[in-house]
Design a protein around this nucleic acid. Structure first.
Lengths: 330, 330
DNA sequence: TTGTAGGCGTTATCAG
DNA sequence: CTGATAACGCCTACAA
């Protein structure tokens, strides 16, 4: 379809080498020849075939990103940042979306590898040693964002455990008598990567150990609203706050509470995690934890490229700062 | 880094042809040879270099998608659908994000073309004949989603004008006395592609021509809240509804109204456009128009692939159904 | 200033 | 059953 260097050479009656020199400016070319070549290239919309070029010198200058479930919005916010940071360093970013299926994720990662991405960023859904081996067998620089897979693979994250502990501190300081931790189904542990939630849960439990005077409960199910209802109606006068491992859980509870004509924070306290961008449209402002999505994304790119560039690279665990956002729902 | 067919051939003491036959299963290979080859390939994690393969037979089986401003969420919802539909037909989907810059968009499109995407989907930010020429000069199948660029390039959309008219009908039927149309800054017309908003505005004006007893106004500025305030306070007893060309405008107004302790729909009516996924977290439920993001996305993929497959293709304009969602803010 | 030759990794064709 | 050979489009020596 598109014109090639060879064809230009033919049209101009010169060799490809000359055409390339005129186009990419290596050596010297006679003025007239050069002009003619450039003109022909222009007229025919010449545009280099990057596949061929990459094949040749073994570099694609492209990074791959595997995104989960766009609807959840977690991670999506990072995409812009990743894109810009990569571009600054001369890399093109290819994003693929993975709709919550473990197989798809593997398939996509392999697809990116086969397309010779020089490095891949994932917020992995898979986990375990088999997946670890799979990733390692690719022999491609990889950076995990958020969820950790193994110590052999660089992960960029915030200290989720400490964040959860701080969150509990904040809630406790507001004189709640009961704190309920809401997170995704815990049954999937061992199958699906819920590392960040596990870390937060650990932090929650540790903090509750300190505040042993407080009641606590963990709700980790798909259908969690019945539990919320049970908890609130079981002991209506007890001041209860929900700490949700993910803003979307908090928003769901908020929605439910409002339908029941309950006021937040008067009737119950609510706190989320991640500070997803939708929150700007929600009032009262949700108290939450900023897990520094942009910062994490930027760091991931930097680290990935460093990994690409270095001969000897040893995997790291990069921990960034989180921030407690004390807003209006506690 | 990764092992190649040639290397496998060497290791096994056969020719590449034989290796390929064993791997891809063309002709027949002696059992032992085949086993050995497969074993070596397995051990060394052989994985075909798709760049080379593509270079060879001129097909990449990849589609490119250019997404705008992820934060806005419009279009983002389509990504999953695009991905799945493309996969069904054997195509890999590469997404790139464009952060609201006209130059970036061009750069990304060119990048996708140079990487030999077989087709590209865009919700274009650019517009005008120069951009049209740019796209055509690529000589690559292209489908525009939502915003139209020109009749020479296939566009998939809903009938925005009719949708806006229906929206006005709905509002009028609820006995509002004034309808205000809120849309992005109109100054950018001619520079930036706001085709869908223009269509909706046309529909709005046409419908208001029919309902000439009603007051109407158009607000198209970046900072529109002052106008909202002016309109509402200027004539407080006049029943006013805002028809927003985009749910995010509606959410912003809703947010503002609630801060002022106004009730919706008691104090003013509110209607959006697009039915973005965030709405699930918002109450009262926003009345809006479903612009059938998933349907549009699916149709775009089908059309793009058809364009790729056919020798003779003439650009079309594909119009899908929209749906008025009469919910709780009118 | 210009051209020739070889290679990147894969595939297709044709000949043994 | 197996193996040369050429080709995809680009790039880099090396030679003229």
């Amino acid at each position: 379809m598109a014109i090639t260097v060879n064809q230009i050479a033919q049209k101009c009656g010169v060799s490809r080498t000359t055409v390339l020199r005129a186009l990419n400016g290596g050596g010297s070319v006679k003025k007239e020849t050069k002009e003619k070549i450039l003109q022909v290239a222009e007229e025919n919309n010449y545009r280099p075939n990057l596949l061929a070029r990459s094949l040749n010198h073994g570099r694609t200058m492209s990074l791959g990103v595997v995104t989960i479930n766009i609807e959840n919005m977690y991670f999506v916010q990072s995409l812009n940042t990743i894109n810009k940071e990569a571009d600054k360093r001369g890399y093109f970013t290819n994003i693929v979306v993975c709709d919550e299926s473990l197989e798809w994720e593997r398939k996509l990662i392999r697809g990116l590898a086969e397309r010779q991405m020089e490095g891949i960023m994932i917020n992995p859904l898979n986990q375990g040693s088999e997946f670890e081996e799979f990733l390692l067998s690719l022999h491609i620089p990889i950076v995990c964002i958020g969820n950790q897979v193994s110590e052999k693979i660089t992960t960029v994250q915030v200290n989720e455990m400490a964040a959860a502990m701080d969150a509990v501190e904040l809630i406790a300081s507001k004189r709640y008598e009961q704190i309920v931790f809401v997170c995704p189904p815990l049954e999937v542990q061992g199958q699906q990567n819920i590392y960040v939630h596990e870390q937060r849960l650990k932090g929650f439990k540790a903090a509750m150990g300190i505040h042993c005077g407080l009641h606590s409960e963990v709700v980790g199910k798909k259908e969690f609203l019945p539990d919320i209802e049970r908890i609130l109606s079981g002991n209506p006068e007890r001041r209860t706050a929900f700490l949700c491992s993910g803003d979307s859980y908090a928003l769901t509870i908020k929605q439910w509470g409002e339908k029941k004509n309950m006021k937040i924070p008067e009737d119950f306290g609510l706190m989320g995690f991640d500070d997803i961008s939708v929150l700007q449209y929600i009032s009262p402002k949700l108290t939450t934890v900023s897990t520094n999505l942009e910062g994490v994304a930027a760091a991931a790119v930097v680290e990935l490229i460093q990994q690409i560039d270095s001969e000897e690279y040893s995997p790291k665990s990069i921990i960034l700062n989180y921030k407690i956002l004390d807003r209006d729902t506690l």
